[in-house]
Computed example of a mutant assay.
Amino acid sequence: MRLLFRCCLTALLLVSSVQHGFAQASFTVLDQAQDSGGGVVQPDATQPADSVRPDAPPPPCGTQQLTIASMGWPSAAVLAEIHARLLRIHFACDTQVIPGDLTATTSSMGSSGQPAVAPEMWVGRVADVWNPAVQAQMVRPATNTYASQVFEGWFMPDYLAATNPGLANAAGLKAALPGVAGGGKVRFVTCPVDWACSVINRNLIKALGLEGLVDIVVPANRFEMDTLIGEAVSKQQPVLFYYWQPNAILNQFSFKPIDLGAYDAEALKCLAQISCPSPKPSSFAPETVVIALADRVFTETPMIAGYFQRASLPLKEMDALLAQLNEAGATPQSVADRFVAERQDIWKSWVGTGPP
């Protein structure tokens, strides 16, 4: 059967420039990778040579080795190992996981088509390299790496959420907080002073009218930040805090997100400034994180492109994988082995046939 492949969608990606200095990235998405069809047709020695179909499809993974970039942070490393295993098992791909980082990997994919896959590409942070690569038709996004595109937020322990439903969203914090700590202030653990989120959190507290209701605790570093949160939870104390995903700590403890409302780009621009004269509420900015594929993956191995178009992972699942990675002796490889063995409920749809 002839594999048909058609491109049909142009998507415009607008990436926020507030917190990370992101640029706008415009890219073309091929939203269909036709991956129905069988294996390679073998010649029949009993038939004349001209009876063999000349349009027999190649193997699902093609004839080249499929290289997958493992970036220098845990979630990307785990994803690279997971995809390498699933492609080997279900598509007989010759896969190789190679080291990478955002800028170098994007540049290499844009110039040589290698590596073939970058499972966690934060395109807004390398828009100046990503955009030309897309325009040159060397690289394309397959799908979002994670089901959610908002990676920062405010959280609280589940025991606090269970007894104080008014804390579930930002709009209710002002009314609910006075009853949480017996009339006293509730601690809010923000991020270190030299992080951009420290300024945003302080201004957002002002915007929500919480200045007299929370005691802002500024940790010196990431380690102290985690220690402060962990100590409060171990003592069952009321505490609110800023954090980001994917992250192991959000799985290790039972935390609930606080709904910060809609994202307002103009409001967040002000919130990100040390001097914000009229702060207004906003959620944190969404970021576009995609599974990036070399263009040839779409054109030469559409079945593999189809696999990646289905391979979006819920953030909470990556939180759980990172918690496993923190266990004694764990490696990205061992975590990937466990995921493949135990989480067919997630990856089964990735390896299925048909368009995503």
Score class of each variant (00 low, 15 high):
Leu12Trp: 11
Leu13Glu: 10
Leu14Lys: 04
Gln19Met: 07
Ala25Arg: 05
Phe27Val: 03
Gln32Glu: 03
Gln34Arg: 13
Asp35Leu: 09
Gly39Ser: 15
Val41Ala: 15
Ser51Gly: 00
Ala56Leu: 00
Pro60Gly: 09
Pro60Asn: 08
Gly62Phe: 15
Thr63Gln: 15
Gln65Asp: 04
Gln65Cys: 02
Ala69Phe: 03
Gly72Asn: 13
Gly72Pro: 03
Ile82Gln: 00
His83Thr: 05
Thr95Asn: 02
Gln96Thr: 07
Leu102Glu: 10
Ala104Pro: 05
Ser108Gly: 04
Gly113Phe: 08
Glu120His: 13
Arg125Gly: 05
Met138Lys: 09
Pro141Lys: 09
Val150Thr: 06
Phe151Met: 00
Asn164Phe: 12
Gly166Tyr: 09
Ala171Glu: 15
Leu173Cys: 02
Leu173Met: 14
Ala175Phe: 05
Ala175Lys: 12
Arg187Ile: 03
Trp195His: 11
Ser198Asp: 14
Asn201Cys: 08
Ile205Arg: 12
Glu211Pro: 00
Gly212Gln: 14
Pro219Trp: 02
Ala220Asp: 08
Ala220Tyr: 12
Arg222Leu: 07
Val233Asp: 12
Gln237Trp: 01
Pro238Arg: 04
Leu240Gly: 12
Phe241Ala: 00
Trp244Asn: 13
Gln245Phe: 04
Pro246Val: 08
Ala248Val: 04
Ile249Gly: 09
Asn251Gln: 06
Gln252Cys: 06
Gln252Arg: 14
Ile258Thr: 11
Leu260Asp: 11
Asp264Glu: 10
Ser278Glu: 05
Phe284Arg: 02
Ala285Lys: 02
Ala294Arg: 07
Arg296Ala: 10
Pro302Gln: 12
Met303Ile: 10
Ala311His: 01
Leu313Ala: 11
Pro314Tyr: 11
Leu315Asp: 09
Ala323His: 14
Ala323Val: 10
Glu327Met: 03
Thr331Cys: 00
Gln333Trp: 06
Gln333Met: 10
Asp337Val: 03
Phe339Leu: 04
Val340Asp: 11
Ile346His: 07
Trp347Asp: 02
Ser349Trp: 02
Ser349Val: 00
Trp350His: 12
Val351Gln: 11
Gly354Ser: 08
Pro355Gln: 15
Pro356Gly: 05
